[in-house]
Amino acid sequence: MISPALKPPKTQPQWVQSLFSPDVLAPVIVGLLILIAWELGVRLTHTPPYLLPGPMLILQTLVKDWPQLFSSWLITLKIAFTALGCATVSGLLVAILFSQSKWIERSFFPYAVLLQTTPIVAVAPLIIIWLKNNTFAALVVCAWIVAFFPIVSNTVLGLNSTDPSLVNLFKLNRANRWQTLRYLRLPAGLPYFLAGLRISGGLALIGAVVAEFVAGTGGTQSGLAYQILMAGYNLQIPRMFAALVLITISGIGIFAALSALSHALLKNWHASAVRHEN
């Protein structure tokens, strides 16, 4: 009765195996080659460290200044993650609200766009003044402004990209608003939401660092941007690079973690995560 076309489920590769996959190995090798070239270049040309430190020196500085850098790193990460969390929750709620009524979406969506187009550097001083008793909250608000929009716009798109026949099926079965949201719109919107989340993850980090820069050296909470500013004043260029390295690592880490989350949630059904065998 049935065409015997099904293969048994493929065994997922171990994460150890995937560590040695070309997808990981190739960029790692490229990175190493660039670092070696950098180190050699700096040494051979006798570039002074206050212009461009070599990777070895940056690494040494990172180890030497670890206590201060580490605590600053934690502060920046805390700001970025709090902002990302707030952006995720508020973004989801707003998107769901928009999806419930075309009128709400029409009326409020332009204001969500406004948040996106506002240069964060321009409004950060205001927010920091308004919330001057609580620098942490001010920085979180700044990072949230940057991270909010991609989640909202992607999720709105996702919640509305439902198969019309499925919408009819739900209507025929007299599904209520909540059921349609829970069983149709949310699952259909999940891939879009996750795509937005991946963008917002990086933006939250950038937003946090930018807001710290604007807040300057005055605040009591001193994140990585503070370290970079201070190192700049004191011409401790290797330390500046060390802080930069930490920011970069955080950005890559956040992106990788959110990609892994996305893959784990979509691997069974969505084209973006399904392995294709030809």
Binding site: S165, L169, N173, Q179, P187, A188
Partner: peptide, 26 residues
């Protein structure tokens, strides 16, 4: 019950969950 030209299945749900949908909704 209505059967459309396209199967109109929920790609995120298994066969059993797809078939169960009308019962779940009611």
């Amino acid at each position: 019950a209505y059967v459309f030209q396209e199967a109109a299945l929920m790609p995120w749900a298994t066969v059993i969950d797809n078939v169960r949908l009308p019962l779940k909704l009611s």
